[in-house]
Design a protein around this nucleic acid. Sequence first.
DNA 1: GTGCTCCTTGACGGTGCCTTGACGCGGTTG
DNA 2: CAACCGCGTCAAGGCACCGTCAAGGAGCAC
Lengths: 228, 228
Amino acid sequence: MRRVLVVDDEPQMLRALGINLRARHYAVATAPDGATALRLAGHCPPDAIVLDLGLPDLDGVEVIAGLRVWCSAPIIVLSGRTGPAVTVEALDAGADDYLTKPFSMDELLARLRAVLRRPVPAAQPRETVEVAAFTVDLGSYTAVPTSGEGEPLHFTPTEWRLLAPLLRNPGRLVTGAQLLRDVWGPGRENRTNYLRIYMSALRRKLEPDPSRPRHLITEPGMGYRFDP
Amino acid sequence: MRRVLVVDDEPQMLRALGINLRARHYAVATAPDGATALRLAGHCPPDAIVLDLGLPDLDGVEVIAGLRVWCSAPIIVLSGRTGPAVTVEALDAGADDYLTKPFSMDELLARLRAVLRRPVPAAQPRETVEVAAFTVDLGSYTAVPTSGEGEPLHFTPTEWRLLAPLLRNPGRLVTGAQLLRDVWGPGRENRTNYLRIYMSALRRKLEPDPSRPRHLITEPGMGYRFDP
DNA sequence: GTGCTCCTTGACGGTGCCTTGACGCGGTTG
DNA sequence: CAACCGCGTCAAGGCACCGTCAAGGAGCAC
């Protein structure tokens, strides 16, 4: 089942899209604003994204750019604002399609089929992030020195699970409880010692000076942040 | 330079599109009708196609279907006919985008950039992989010593099925569950002992030192990886 | 029927990963 | 100044996972 992330600030539009998409057997996640969208996409990578431009917190182009940092899933933009300038801006920011409200639900579904039709199996969705001297690919689970020379890094499953939500939300703070839920599942939100152990291991492998981390940054009392 | 095939029955539209596209450094081929379009696309495979639906000889959907038989280049449809039904029909026939006339040239160019941004479907007819001292060909199911001298290797059907997804994704981690699905079909994701047995057999045949594998690498808790 | 190859299944030992507890350090608070 | 809290580090134990061997059974050629 393909996962679709729907981002819109109007609850009724969110409901309408969710119902229609679920009826077509998509797995739907919804977000009411840009920050939630970026966070959700980081924790559960979707196969496609339907994005309304008129969000309360972030500009639409910022959301697209934030997603495109690591996410290559097709983005279909919905917008009430018309005119070629906005369309061009959104498309050049990384969107794959642009629909003007009011739109036909049938047309949206057809355009969604069109972007999802693109070859998935052979295409290797790369999710490469540069961190310190290494190029980390969350898609193929590889971490090699960016220079090309040297030994690749090896991470354990838990280390990969912890690394993923951080690297997929560059510059953003990720709550300790959120990380614990992502890695160890719900019910372990208070086992912060797990986080300390594995963050230590990640820093020892990735950071040039593990005692003074520059990329995997602790926000005391809040959580952690990946600074690219 | 990317090749674009423009199909439209109005000569002035053809000229306008040709001028604008050439100004953006595209190589442009033009066709006034569907038959010419199909012929041209066959002679010189384009990277993208801009297709007007109102052609004198063939219906637009027929042209799309005719192209899609062998051509996977993105198709942007232009149409004077409006309404969601036509759009849906064209998209489901295989088009990638749909613009209603009159359209903004800037928007068309942006949409063209968007569809051309997609990674080239990397047709890789080359199915031979060098692993250790052997040259393995997944197309003909042969594995001979790279030196030319010596006995060819023999793999059982199950061993070939297990080898294929690993060798087709060099450097990439392949999940144990994915391998089990590929080889034994869905529903056997927990029979990890199968994997252990056959990975052991593959290593015994391919690796110089089966006890210390260098190409068929285990990632504990995650899966296996072919390291070339 | 006989012999062969191949797939399946069970059992056993070892390695590496996860968990758990404890301790030290720095910053904040009373 | 002392107590406390949050964070980073280390070491040790348990256990899931992995590699290997061996035996049983199905399918096929002769």
